[in-house]
Write a protein that binds this DNA or RNA. Structure first.
Length: 427
DNA sequence: TCTGGGGTCCTAGGACCC
DNA sequence: TCTGGGGTCCTAGGACCC
């Protein structure tokens, strides 16, 4: 049997390229890809990190995820542009649609990259490498930005190949090229070998991908347990996974938000959680899914994260049910520390409701159906306007919950505080 | 003027059941 | 009045990706 042929297509500096295209289309005369520039968050609201950088900014040593403050020190004439996520989403969809014409077997890995399974396509396109160059040129002409394309016999190698030299390049990493092209690279360049893993490997005397490929598996297993097998196989360019659309198996939907300043007031936190819950619930219903597990995510002023969750007996997609649980989780788990970031996560998602209907609750079930239809109407209106302009009166009340409930909560929490705070300190 | 946001996957430990 | 062991579900936390 012939080896599979996989393409990995990756947009060069996606956020910066897409913003450049946007600006040029809207009358901006400068191409921000040709100057020292970055896409960055707003420092005033504490989102001041680098999301993408231009090649010139990179030459100054600017790296993704560093603070804008530090980037500016490296490169004083740096120009900073805000992100435009709605536009990025549009650009992403447009690209994926375009690429589908070359192979129906597509897997999107992130907003700006995907795999195409091109196995057998050499019957249609004589030379697949030539085709890659054609796709690359077409994207540039049609959409106004460049991509890298990696070609290999599996997903992992295609992904590694597209990362080789940027921008605007086609690279191959076929079976017979692994030793020469992959093995000399730093082990930290291997997909899924992050900072921590690299440090551990270096301690064992493993510095290149080749070192890892030749390392003693027993030794690796002692340190990395079941991850050892993956690591060594990856280093040897082995990956059997198929190109397939992401299923909703272990999906989750979440929203988190860094607050403009640290909050300690639970009522303030509830206001944020309320808005976030509406957001994730709307997405849940749009995807026609139901959630079983509802969680709250915290990050305090010391950058220590913690989270808590509850699992329901029956999946739901009602904002009303979910917000109640969100508040419960908050009340049970907030350590009264200074909160920098807070968020809501829905996980354990299922596509069917499969409710256990109690024989004794017929009336209740009827009212649930009514609630469903009210919720649907509200969603339709809100989706049309893109915002939560409408909410059921019952939710309004929950959102503004104050007074008595709060008092009870404070009492409950102060008795709990002593047990829980030790945990934070230990971290 | 320090350190984003949305995800996936894995692991360890506890509860509970047989 | 000795304290097994497998399976499943759940929680919390951490590593990693872009």
């Amino acid at each position: 049997m012939k080896d599979p042929i996989i393409f990995h297509i990756d947009v060069n500096n996606a956020f910066l390229s897409w913003t450049a295209v946007y600006l040029l289309q809207n009358g901006y005369t400068k191409d921000i890809r040709t100057i020292p520039s970055i896409i960055g968050g707003d420092e005033k609201t504490r989102r001041g990190i680098v999301l993408a950088k231009s090649p010139i900014a990179k030459k100054y040593g600017v790296v993704t995820a560093e603070t804008i403050y530090s980037a500016k020190k490296k490169c004083p004439n740096l120009e900073i542009f805000p992100g435009n996520y709605r536009w990025y989403y549009q650009k992403s969809k447009e690209l994926m649609e375009y690429l589908k014409q070359y192979s129906p077997q597509q897997e999107q890995l992130s907003i700006d990259e995907c795999f195409l399974d091109m196995s057998g396509m050499d019957y249609i396109y004589k030379d697949l490498i030539e085709l890659a160059y054609k796709i690359k040129a077409e994207i540039k002409e049609k959409f106004g930005y460049t991509v890298n394309i990696g070609i290999a016999n599996n997903k992992l190698c295609a992904k590694m190949a597209s990362d080789f030299e940027k921008p605007d390049k086609v690279h191959t990493l076929m079976k017979d090229e692994i030793v020469t092209k992959l093995w000399p690279l730093d082990v930290g360049d291997l997909f899924m070998c992050g900072k921590k893993t690299k440090e551990e490997l270096n301690k064992m005397g493993i510095y290149t991908i080749g070192d890892l490929a030749r390392a003693d598996i027993k030794k690796l297993e002692r340190k990395f347990k079941s991850q050892a097998k993956y690591l060594q196989e990856a280093a040897r360019g082995i990956d059997e996974s198929k190109v397939e659309e992401r299923t909703s198996k272990n999906q989750s939907i979440s929203v988190t938000e860094t607050l403009p300043y640290n909050y300690t007031d639970s009522e303030k936190l509830k206001e944020i959680l309320f808005r976030q819950t509406e957001e994730v619930c709307r997405e849940l219903r749009q995807k026609k899914l139901f959630t079983k597990t509802i969680g709250v995510i915290f990050k305090n002023s010391n950058f220590i994260s913690y989270s808590a969750q509850v699992t329901l007996e029956n999946p739901t997609n009602h904002t009303k049910d979910i917000i109640k649980k969100v508040y419960e989780v908050l009340e049970e788990n907030y350590k009264e520390d200074e909160i920098r970031l807070i968020g809501v996560r829905l996980s354990n998602l299922v596509s069917e409701k499969k409710e256990q209907i109690s024989l004794f609750e017929e009336d209740n079930n009827k009212s649930k159906e009514e609630e469903d239809s009210i919720q649907e109407t509200i969603d339709n209106i809100n989706n049309k306007f893109g915002k939560s302009i409408l909410k059921p009166a019952s939710l309004q009340l929950l959102g503004e919950s104050k007074s008595k409930k709060n008092e009870i909560w404070k009492e409950k929490n102060s008795s709990k505080k002593n047990q829980k705070s030790t945990k934070t300190d230990a971290n």
